[in-house]
Amino acid sequence: MSRPLPAHPPVDATDSAGAAAPALELRKLTVRHGGVEALARVSATLHAGEITCVLGENGSGKSTLVSVLSGLRRHDEGKLLIGGTPRHFRSPRQARAAGIATVWQDLAVAPLLSVWRNFFLGAEPTRGVWPLRRLDLARARETTVRAMARVGVLGLDPDQPASALQAGERQSLSVARALHFGARALVIDEPTTPITLARQTLFGQAVLAARAEGLAVVLVTNNPRYAHLIGDRFLLLAGGQVAGHLTRDDVDADVLTALMAGGEELTTLTSALTALHPELGER
């Protein structure tokens, strides 16, 4: 009695009509924190086999977008379509079952648990029937070692606690887990922990490999140059709204940097200050 692991089940990216339905689609999605709209009528299409970079200042709604896509929050209005079907995730478990896996900004690693327990946390492989249903330890350990090797961490003891891993290895654990469970889409909230260039390269390779496998990749980043290097499309968020939806052909890295790093913010600031102090406008 064993249940299949949700590792890369076949995903049909096409609907019944044969036309390709986007892997993920947001239609006028609105999310409110209390009375404040964290996301306001956001529409976007995230295609399979493409990397969509989400860019924006702090508080622009990037993390809210991540938590909606990964099932941590429910949206209040609008639609979230997965492969053409509207979904309302009630828990990250459901999102993961639908093939959407997330690399969280804080990595979502429990320091006192062993590596393999972390890898499968919330989606453990089991065997046996209910009163005696138990973890399939051998399979979990083996899968963990294999998945970690895939992102370049070799010779790992899956029984060591996650706190014994180096910062970069912990990040690799998070990425390996998302790659293992993400059959349809990969949501990456770029971790803030500093990592070495070698790890960053491995990370980038993993993201590109996921794209090549036909996954829709959503990469939330603060680094416009990196985004331009790796991304196919760019979703710019400002104040919870879509400020721009660009493709790689539309912009070069400098424009993206300007858009991202304060271009818009500075314009708003300038107009606000000149309204209060007209003499500033003469400079």
Partner: peptide, 9 residues
């Protein structure tokens, strides 16, 4: 790790 647990469902 309550936050991580929530994030993983």
């Amino acid at each position: 790790a309550r936050r991580a647990a929530r994030e993983l469902g």
